[in-house]
C-alpha cells in the first residue's frame, strides 16, 4: 500500500475520533445550557421557601420536594453507608478470595446492574403493601438498595489501595486486627471512601423511578416519615408531564437545582480525590 494513502487514512481516522468526541459532548452542553437558561428565571427565593401553588397558578416553589429529597437521601445514607463500608471491609480485610467473597462481589455487580425501577417494585410489594401506605421510609429504603453496591465497590477499591506494608507494620507491633482496621486502614483510606460516598449520594439524589411507588410524592409537607413525601426528581417528572406552563417552569428550575447538586458533589469528590493521589 502506498504511504501517502496510509497517512491520509490515518489523518482521516484521527479526525473521525475527534468528531465523535465532539458529537458526544453536544448533548451535555445542550442539556446544561437549556436547563440553566430555562431554570434560572424561575429560580428565586420563593422556589426554596414555598410549597407548590395550585395547577395553573404561577409562582410557588418546591421547598417540600427539596426537603423530601434530603430526608430520603439521609435515610438511604444511614442504611447504605454502614452496610456498604462494613461489607467492603470484609471483602478486603478478612477474606479476599473465598467463594463467599466472590459470591458477594457477584451480587454487588448484579445489584449495580439491575434497573432502578425494579427496586421500586420490590419495596412496593415488600414494604408499601405490607404497611398499607407510601412513605418516606420506603423511599429511603429503596434508595439505600441502590446505594449499597455503589459504596461497596468504591470503598473496596480504596481499601485495596492502602499499602500492604502498613498492615504488616501494624501486625509487627502486635496490634489487634480491629485496631489496625479502625485506626490505621480506615483513616488512611478515608478521603477515598468519602469521595465514593459523595458520588453515591449524587447518584441517588437524582433517582426517580424507585420513588414513584414508594415515596409517591406529595403536594404538601409530610408530617412524618410514615407519610407520602415529595422528592425533587419525582416532582420534576410530574410537572414536566403536566399541561401547565407554570409547572413546566418549576420543572426547569427544579432540574437546575438537581443538576447543581450533582455537579457540585462530583466536583468536590474529584477535587478531594485528586489532592490525595498527587
Amino acid at each position: 500500500m502506498n504511504d501517502r494513502l496510509r497517512k491520509y487514512r490515518n489523518t482521516m481516522m484521527m479526525g473521525i475520533f475527534i468528531v465523535a468526541t465532539l458529537i458526544a459532548l453536544i448533548p451535555l452542553f445542550g442539556v446544561l445550557g437549556y436547563v440553566v437558561i430555562n431554570g434560572i428565571s424561575a429560580l428565586d427565593l420563593d422556589f426554596f421557601m414555598n410549597l407548590p401553588k395550585a395547577m395553573g397558578v404561577s409562582g410557588g416553589g418546591m421547598a417540600n420536594a427539596i426537603v423530601g429529597t434530603l430526608i430520603m437521601v439521609l435515610i438511604a445514607s444511614l442504611i447504605g453507608m454502614p452496610v456498604g463500608i462494613l461489607a467492603a471491609i470484609y471483602l478486603t480485610e478478612y477474606d479476599r478470595t473465598s467463594w463467599l467473597s466472590i459470591a458477594v462481589r457477584f451480587a454487588t455487580d448484579v445489584l449495580t446492574g439491575i434497573p432502578s425501577i425494579i427496586v421500586g417494585i420490590v419495596i412496593y410489594t415488600a414494604v408499601v403493601l405490607r404497611m398499607g401506605h407510601f412513605s418516606a421510609l420506603a423511599g429511603g429504603l429503596a434508595l439505600s438498595i441502590i446505594m449499597i453496591p455503589l459504596i461497596i465497590r468504591s470503598t473496596e477499591e480504596m481499601l485495596k489501595l492502602v499499602s500492604q506494608s502498613i498492615r504488616e507494620a501494624g501486625y509487627a507491633l502486635g496490634i489487634s486486627k480491629r485496631i489496625i482496621i479502625l485506626r490505621i486502614i480506615l483513616p488512611t483510606a478515608a478521603k477515598g471512601i468519602i469521595t465514593g460516598a459523595m458520588l453515591a449520594v449524587a447518584r441517588v439524589s437524582g433517582e426517580t423511578a424507585p420513588l414513584l411507588f414508594t415515596a409517591l410524592g406529595n403536594q404538601y409537607w409530610a408530617r412524618s416519615l410514615n407519610e407520602p413525601i415529595a422528592a425533587l426528581p419525582v416532582q420534576i417528572y410530574q410537572y414536566a408531564t403536566s399541561p401547565y406552563a407554570e409547572w413546566h417552569q418549576l420543572a426547569w428550575a427544579g432540574s437546575l437545582v438537581l443538576i447543581l447538586m450533582v455537579v457540585i458533589l462530583n466536583l468536590i469528590a474529584r477535587f478531594a480525590f485528586r489532592s490525595r493521589s498527587n
Partner: peptide, 11 residues
C-alpha cells in the same frame, strides 16, 4: 453526561 439524572434528560 452519565451523572445527569434521567428525569432531566426526559424534561
Amino acid at each position: 453526561l452519565a451523572a445527569i439524572p434521567s428525569v432531566v434528560y426526559g424534561l
